[in-house]
Design a protein around this nucleic acid. Sequence first.
RNA 1: GGGCUUGUAGCUCAGGUGGUUAGAGCGCUACACUGAUAAUGUAGAGGUCCGUGGUUCGAGUCCACGCAGGCCCA
Length: 1148
Amino acid sequence: MPQFCLAYTIKSPLYVKFKEYKNLDYAQVADEILNFWNQEQIFEKSISTRAGHPSFTFYEGPPSANGTPGIHHVMARAIKDIFCRYQTLKGKQVKRKGGWDTHGLPVELQVEKELGITKEDIGKKISVEEYNQKCRETVMKFTGQWNDLTEKMGYWVDLENPYVTYQTPYIESVWNLLKRLYDKGLLYKGYTIQPYSPAAGTGLSSHELNQPGCYRDVKDTSLTAQFKAIQNQKSQFLFELSQGNPVYLLAWTTTPWTLPSNSALTAGKGITYVLVNTFNPYTFLPVHVVLAKDLVKNYFNATAENGDFEAYVAAEKKPQAIPYQIIGECKGADLEGIEYEQLMPYVQPATPAFRVILGDFVTTEDGTGMVHTAPTFGADDFRVAQQNGIPAIMVLDANGKEVPLVNRQGQFVEEVSDYALEPVKEAYLTEEEKEQARIKQGRDKYLSVDERIAIQLKTENKAFNVQKFDHPYPHCWRTDKPVLYYPLDSWFIKTTAVKDKLIALNQTIQWKPESTGTGRFGNWLENLVDWNLSRSRYWGTPLPIWRTEDGSEEICIGSLEQLTSELEKALSSGKLNADQVKGNQDFLAAIQAGTADLHRPFVDQVYLVSASGAVLSRELDLIDVWFDSGAMPFAQWHYPFENQEVFKESYPADFISEGVDQTRGWFFTLHAISSMVEDSVAFKNVVSTGLVLDKNGNKMSKRLGNAIDPFDTLKKYGADPTRWYMITNAQPWDNLKFDLAGITEVRNKFFGTLTNTYNFFALYANLDGFDPETNTLDEANLTELDRWVLSKLMHLIQEVDEAYATYEPTKAGRAIQDFVCDHLSNWYVRLSRRRFWNPESTEKGINPDKQAAYQTLYTCLETVAQLMSPIAPFYGDWLFKNLSNKESVHLTDFVPVNPAWVNPELEASMDLAQRICSLVHSIRKVHKLKVRQPLAQVLVPVLQEQVRDQIRRVEDLIKSEVNVKQVNYLDDAAGVLSKKVKPNFKALGPKFGKDMKLVAEAISSMTAENLHVLEAQGSILLSNFSIELADVEILTEDMPGYLTASESGLTIALDSQLSPSLVREGMAREFVNRIQNLRKESGFDVVDKINIDVLKGDVAWEESIQEFGSYICQEVQALSINWKDSLDQASEISMDDTTLSVKVTVHK
RNA sequence: GGGCUUGUAGCUCAGGUGGUUAGAGCGCUACACUGAUAAUGUAGAGGUCCGUGGUUCGAGUCCACGCAGGCCCA
């Protein structure tokens, strides 16, 4: 008996509107979209189509192109790109000019290495001109690679017209800024403490000092000096403890020759100090000394603690162990401000000095925990003195210039009378000179300055301890002589004068993360010292200051125009010699020809003449390269000489982003220059990004071989998964442990799911000829599921919008990911599949329900494409272009939230549905009840009417998802529910406080009657505590006689009884399943119609297939099911203990 | 040594304003599903929430002191 089913046809697609993809290669997607962008100039259009809109300004921190880009640059630039693209979607015009940082030491060192020369050779083996030419070539060596990476990773930045810091217009702008600072009195020549070799007469760079062999162990005289405290209000507490006896502050030094230059003592704020009553070991006089508690053991023999003072005084021969007694204790902070008498009063300071200050560099590792501070001979000393307003001890030289107590030859100046013109280090003397000095000293053996100072202080009761001390000390690599830390001339910007302004302006900047702004950057501003601009190098922006030799007259140049007129003035002054005239004429000609090079050596050949007729020559220093990059808001536009309008529009920046290591680099220089010059911040929002480490958390380095090649990565995985992984895995400011396996995960999980979802849509949309243009969304036809996913989508838009707006890309990415994977794919699409493959298309078109499904899914996909496009620009555009006829997602406007679609009640319902389904699945699993086997009912106990209504809305979904016939509700009327009560701590806490434990106990031990009373009356008195309904949570956990499961307050019961009819239906479903498998195994097409032959014999199967024949036919696209007595080439299908022979053929 | 920062399952990470049963993904184990299938579902194992004190009726969460990693600075 053939059984005929309803015949229907699926319309074959006339044309493929939505392209379908198999095995999508994301790198290829990126390539194709990149070509499309280039061809259609999408980047340019994204700016030009926003002309006239409000602007959003981004500043590109210029990379140095003399190294190759790494994977961390992909990260850093993805962050920058995301917010620029987002703001474009939001309708802003976002210009972003690229730039290159081209000056500086790294470039010079690289060139030196390539040429095999050192700094000393420049100007000798190679001319400065040639050398700088070489730098100029080297610095742009890898621009090709950089541009390539920029394109491949999808970073949109204007590379056609970048700013380049070595170009003349850029330098001119930098000069202009310097001139503006000069005119405000913020530029001055001072000194800074640097390693200096008196033997060679030259300063040494820190990198020269780090050469192997520079640090050598030497034996020096170390001395612990007694600084006599002055009794006043600050020090009163010490004198009270000493009962009015003199109190000495102990400080240790390995360079006694710096003691005449002492002007402060530095203590550690948190260090504990003690006051000790004892005797001076050299003079045997009783003394009270202050030193760090932890270091007492280094100065005293513990056996002598609280020893016999009187016996010591009486002793003829003083014992080694000097008795001592600790009589008081305080913190470093308590010592701050205590004044003391100058130790070696050869030269007096100009302003008050000689007091205790606090410094963060003080340790208790050695010495006394109190550091002798000589601002002229220590970098720490200099800094901490400057911060505390302590003057240095200086004398005036023959020119009336302030100089330190040691001259450039390493000798004491004459004012240090006892040691006048003696070298401070023994090593500076030859053997002969030493011998002469010995004779002069009238001793058997030459004694160094340090040694004689020690002797002098011992006799004056000013030395507490003198020892030889072995320690490593830096030496000059050329002369082998010890180095001095010595004040050398430098040009400074007086940032300390504008400190308050810098701090105030910083408070208006939005930092991500906030702690970088308030902590790292804020603290840096609090402890600001003047900005040392000088660099003694060749390749950099020259300092535009010309000066007389004695420094009495100077001029600062702020433009080529000014330089021209000064040149002309100088030439006509008649004060220059022939060489100078030649140099000036050449330079003037170059300016007029527009070919002037503002670098060394050319600017050095320019000589100007002051108003009084003195010849001025250029200060040879270059400026710190950080000034170059900090000047970019101005100099990138050659402001103020050009582009005044552009500058005004694009200043200050709305947004910048760089690595957190730039806090004191670019972030600071931008901020400082802007604050000083314009009284404005340079940027309103800043994201400081963390480091990219290898997957084990180690720093990536080429040397260790754990560096990830960005080009390989982009090629293998594609830019979008790479970017998505980086952004969603960690917050931008946290360090990222970069693991390629993570990109694979993101690719499979997120991009795979999204592409699958798209393909699913495309497959059926093409079959049905769905066209989003003509089949517009009709809200009347939306199902609950459609409304739900649209509501979720609205929330997603809100969330993502807010995340991007507040510079939280990780939150945005994760939200999109969750929506796509959990809500859209695993719930909406999974539950909607049947609607899509429902073949009942009417002749007039797609039926309304199906159309609603298409429209809903289409809307979700299109929106997701846009929301994700800032992070995954290629894929986002690819997805968008597959769905839409519009040119590019990057030219669209950010989709608004449709408030009518926001439906929190429905979301709550669906949440319940999902939880109920999950519980049913779990019961089915535990009791081995297959999902294909329909069950009669699921029971849900609900105590609140509202919850019941919520579930009722989504009943159908639950029924089809878990394959049950009915959802039924249990209220308490029957009294079958066993209820449980739990304390609601959040509500009880404020009410009962300390009695919480008792209350909780009382509630937990409530009887059924108690609970009944509470429910009926709304409150109950338990152990004298009045409990209200809101103070407890009532839930049901158990239903005797049913299969139950519960999770966070929700309980369900499953009716597992099978009627014969349910069994037959279950078998029919099994049959469908097996036929579907056969179709697939046989390679039939989705639209193929089939005929099914079945072997007679099994009654159960026959009954089941007869009863559900039309259902089966519909499901498997069968035209007929034929019962046969015998069957050739049949397939066996089995269920439980029975088997059935079937044969499936395509209907032709 | 100082400033900032991180520490939660084998791995990568979530965990407003303190609330008693700490979550997700990946990985692992087992089972199920099979017109999205290089998918998917369910269950399980897996945690001294870096440590020690403190505040509190109650601490992953707040405070103090440490330990370990990172960055910047000395």
